[in-house]
Amino acid sequence: EEEKYTVIYPYTARDQDEMNLERGAVVEVIQKNLEGWWKIRYQGKEGWAPASYLKKNSG
């Protein structure tokens, strides 16, 4: 089951394993960790993003 989330704040990656996020983008969360960083898939790429910048899509 894919978990789709919408980006609610833009984010600029500060590290090579982080993802740039555009507000309104829909991403797939593939791994959650306890530090508040989630691994996401977006446009065929995978990387880490701050969970607080993502909002779960309803339905």
Rank of each mutant, 00 (worst) to 15 (best):
V27T: 01
A51E: 13
Q31C: 09
Y53K: 07
L54Q: 00
E18I: 04
K45T: 03
E46A: 11
A49S: 03
Y42D: 08
G59M: 10
Y9V: 15
G36F: 04
Y5I: 02
Y9R: 15
R14Y: 03
K32Q: 03
L34Q: 14
T12K: 09
G24N: 10
A51T: 09
G36P: 06
Y9Q: 15
R23F: 06
S58I: 08
K45Y: 03
Y9K: 15
Y5A: 14
V7A: 14
A13E: 03
A25T: 14
P10E: 08
V7M: 03
E2T: 14
E1K: 08
S58G: 12
E2Y: 06
G47F: 09
Y11E: 02
V27P: 00
W48G: 02
P50Y: 02
G47N: 02
N33P: 13
P50F: 01
Y9C: 14
I40R: 00
L54P: 00
Y53Q: 13
G44E: 02
M19W: 05
Y42S: 14
L21G: 00
I30Y: 03
N57S: 12
N33I: 02
W37N: 09
T6Q: 12
Y53F: 08
A51W: 02
L21H: 01
R23T: 11
W48E: 03
W37H: 03
K4D: 13
M19R: 02
A13V: 08
G24W: 03
V7P: 01
L54N: 00
T12S: 11
A51K: 13
L54H: 01
I30G: 02
G36K: 14
W48V: 09
R14T: 09
I8N: 10
T12R: 11
R23I: 09
T12F: 07
A51M: 09
E3Q: 14
Y9N: 15
Y9D: 15
W48D: 02
A25L: 05
R23W: 03
K56G: 09
K45G: 06
K55E: 14
E22N: 08
E1L: 05
G36Y: 11
D17N: 12
G47Y: 04
P50D: 05
A51P: 14
T12M: 04
K32L: 02
A25M: 13
Q16Y: 05
V29H: 00
Y11W: 09
W37S: 04
K55P: 00
A25C: 06
Y42C: 13
Q31V: 08
E2N: 06
N57I: 14
K45C: 11
Y5W: 08
N57R: 08
E46H: 08
V29W: 00
K4L: 13
P50Q: 05
T12E: 05
G59T: 11
G44S: 09
Q31L: 07
S58T: 06
K55A: 06
R41F: 03
V7H: 00
V29E: 00
E2P: 06
K55Y: 05
R41H: 14
E1N: 11
R41K: 15
K56W: 08
M19C: 09
